[in-house]
């Protein structure tokens, strides 16, 4: 009871703070649209000339990747609020409260995930514009997977933020972690046909399976499915679930050590 109250409180605070910051909401909406419009269209047009297999639509391929990317950035950087709170003192108020530290970490992870999910939901609304039809059940399944991805990535952010004393340090480390995670995730280019060393790296990136799960669900009935996905859905889900478990464990442990 007490623990769930603490988780709820920490979550609620992050959500209230989010909706009070209008520029953040604008940025959240604008950024993925920009990526979809510029990178998606740009690459889509230049790839048309290359020897793409029949039926392969780059924008379709890219769309789940863009959603994955938005969730990645929003989740991971939401943990900056820990560094922020440390800088402005509020962290101390939380650390001296008579609640277990792990409940605070989970509240934070849920808060960041909620915001990332909002962004993902808005992007999913754009599906018809890209020319993809999604049934309500598909959307629910996608949201469930996206939630797992968001939760694990926020936890990853918490793991790092708990050790960081400055915003600059956090940004540096995160860029170092996030960009490879993103580039290797297969969000922008398919794994098939990559040189073996790159394919190995892509297989090691847990986000690869997250993005692949999204494609698996999104294109379950599409004739181009074979071209778009890499792994069976069960493999994807197992890896994503394991990733959540590992990262939230690391996150709560790191946050418990904060002084």
């Amino acid at each position: 009871m007490r623990v769930s109250k603490a988780i709820y409180t920490i979550w609620l605070r992050d959500v209230i703070r989010f909706y009070r910051e209008k520029p953040r909401i604008l940025g959240m909406l604008g950024q993925p649209l920009l990526y979809l419009l510029i990178i998606g269209n740009g690459l889509s047009y230049s790839f048309r000339m290359a020897a793409a297999p029949q039926g392969f639509n780059y924008l379709e391929f890219m769309y789940p990747g863009i959603i994955g990317m938005s969730v990645l950035f929003t989740s991971v950087f939401s943990a900056i609020s820990i560094v922020w709170d440390r800088e402005f003192g509020f962290l101390k108020e939380v650390l001296v409260a008579p609640v277990p530290r792990w409940s605070v970490a989970i509240g934070k992870a849920l808060g960041g995930s909620t915001i990332a999910m909002l962004q993902a939901a808005i992007l999913l609304l754009l599906a018809p514009v890209i020319g993809i039809k999604l049934g309500p059940l598909t959307v629910l399944k996608l949201l469930a997977v996206l939630f797992l991805i968001a939760f694990s990535l926020t936890s990853l952010g918490i793991t790092v933020a708990s050790r960081m004393e400055t915003m600059e340090g956090f940004q540096m480390v995160m860029n170092f972690l996030v960009l490879p995670l993103f580039f290797l995730s297969g969000a922008m280019f398919p794994m098939k046909g990559m040189p073996p060393w790159l394919e190995t790296l892509m297989r090691l990136d847990p986000l690869t399976y997250g993005v692949d799960a999204l494609r698996n669900i999104m294109f379950a009935t599409s004739p181009a499915r074979e071209l778009l996905v890499q792994f069976p859905l069960s493999t994807d889900l197992a890896v994503v679930a394991a990733m959540s478990l590992v990262f939230i464990t690391a996150g709560t442990m790191a946050f418990s050590k904060v002084e």
Partner: peptide, 27 residues
């Protein structure tokens, strides 16, 4: 109850919200 030298309020929340969250954390 603890009142530190440096502020530990959340300045982006209202006075009421600061009190409410504290009350929630202290059950």
């Amino acid at each position: 109850g603890l009142v530190f030298q440096e502020t530990t309020l959340d300045e982006r929340l209202t006075a009421g919200e600061n009190l409410y969250f504290h009350g929630m954390l202290y059950n």
